[in-house]
Design a binder for these strands. Sequence first.
DNA 1: GGTGTCATGTAAACAGTTACATGATTTT
DNA 2: AAAATCATGTAACTGTTTACATGACACC
Lengths: 182, 182
Amino acid sequence: MSLNHVILGLLNHNEMTGYDLKKMIQKSDFMYWSGNNNQIYKALSELNQNGFVTSEVHYQESSPNKKVYAITDAGKAVLKDWLLSPLEEMEIRKPFLMRLACAKDLTEEELLTLLNHYEEQINIQLMMTKNHAQIHASNGSVYDQRHEKHELISRFIIKNVQKSYESELMWIREFKKAFTEH
Amino acid sequence: MSLNHVILGLLNHNEMTGYDLKKMIQKSDFMYWSGNNNQIYKALSELNQNGFVTSEVHYQESSPNKKVYAITDAGKAVLKDWLLSPLEEMEIRKPFLMRLACAKDLTEEELLTLLNHYEEQINIQLMMTKNHAQIHASNGSVYDQRHEKHELISRFIIKNVQKSYESELMWIREFKKAFTEH
DNA sequence: GGTGTCATGTAAACAGTTACATGATTTT
DNA sequence: AAAATCATGTAACTGTTTACATGACACC
């Protein structure tokens, strides 16, 4: 149940509404949850029931009312426990590799177009993260960047995602080269 | 429903039982399904009902009876349709990055031990894939490697997984360096 | 005598996605 | 006039994992 932990982590930066959390998770390049309503509002009510967050209703005229959530001391303790607990393994899901493994009956031409499609896709994804990174860098980002330490961390998180794509592109080029040289 | 497609792809190499498929998927470094019974036997009966595979019971004395599944022409057509259809996007799930993003209140020491744990974990995973690759190379592997083309493909699939881990290790070292140099 | 392999299957629980519902305001 | 933003929530569905059930044989 890691999403609950991440929500605590986000609320540890700033108090927020469910809607804010949803947008943050959906925009992020490295948070791997869809950020749909069901997930987030359920997680929040669960965290609230356990006393890990508090919620305060803000009445508004022109827009619907908000529930602003804030982390409690109990929540901070749970967050820290998680941070120091054994690390979950990463998962790489590359449907392209599945296709490659099943490509026995494809012609060399078909295989090359598949590879080219993949290269294009990864290129697009890389460009998107670079775009997001620029936006982050220009307008202050989600996290407060007054502290150097935290700035370093967020820079390296973005770098990590970009490196994953760049490494993939390098592999594709190597593969294409090996493939065209029979 | 990509698992069904991959099962077709595997059966396109060799006819097999559900148990064989299960083991293959569980041992694989790049197939991202757990390969539990429920998934595989359900998928097989579905493929069978749709006429994409046939099943033949092999009676055995000392072990339980087998159902050997083979791909049909209809199954081959479905497989090829999938191979030429639009590519699904890859997903990278790195719980470590989630922790980093939530690490605001950790001390620099705690953060460094987290990083070291991660490095160790990735190192272990890399070594495991290298081990698997050796086993594959020595005893003929799952796929028949009579054809050069296919040998090239399986070599590059393994290379892809390894490169993902190596790129991660490089990132970790870069991060540790940047971190210790304040 | 306990664990592991071979072999198939089901039940229950949990996680995740899509789609629905409401309703005012702002943008295209 | 249609679509998007703000804002919260639920229902139905699909997908995935864990655990159960059976039973012979081989290995340590």
